[in-house]
Simulated scan of single mutants.
Amino acid sequence: MTTPSAPLTPEQQPAAPAPAKKGSAILKKVGGVLVAIVIALGVKFGLPYLTGDAPVHAKAGECVTVTGADNDPKVDTADCSSGKADLFKVVKVYDDTFDLNKCGQELSALAQQLESDKFVLCLEEVVKK
Score class of each variant (00 low, 15 high):
52 G>A: 00
40 A>V: 11
44 K>M: 10
59 K>V: 08
52 G>Y: 02
13 Q>M: 04
53 D>L: 09
28 K>T: 14
30 V>P: 05
15 A>L: 15
20 A>S: 08
46 G>I: 07
33 V>T: 05
24 S>F: 08
15 A>P: 00
24 S>E: 07
52 G>T: 04
26 I>C: 01
39 I>A: 15
14 P>F: 04
25 A>W: 05
34 L>R: 04
55 P>Q: 07
34 L>V: 10
6 A>E: 10
29 K>R: 13
12 Q>M: 04
8 L>A: 13
28 K>Q: 11
43 V>S: 06
35 V>P: 05
20 A>R: 11
49 Y>M: 11
10 P>V: 00
21 K>P: 06
40 A>F: 12
60 A>E: 04
11 E>A: 13
8 L>K: 09
37 I>Q: 01
28 K>M: 09
10 P>F: 00
42 G>W: 10
30 V>T: 12
40 A>K: 03
26 I>A: 10
53 D>T: 15
33 V>D: 02
42 G>I: 07
41 L>H: 02
18 A>V: 06
53 D>W: 09
52 G>D: 06
6 A>T: 05
37 I>R: 01
37 I>P: 00
57 H>P: 01
46 G>M: 15
17 P>M: 13
35 V>L: 15
61 G>Q: 05
61 G>C: 06
50 L>N: 14
30 V>F: 12
42 G>L: 08
6 A>C: 03
36 A>H: 00
17 P>A: 12
44 K>E: 13
34 L>G: 12
54 A>D: 06
15 A>M: 08
21 K>D: 14
53 D>H: 08
36 A>P: 07
14 P>L: 11
21 K>F: 02
58 A>Y: 12
39 I>V: 13
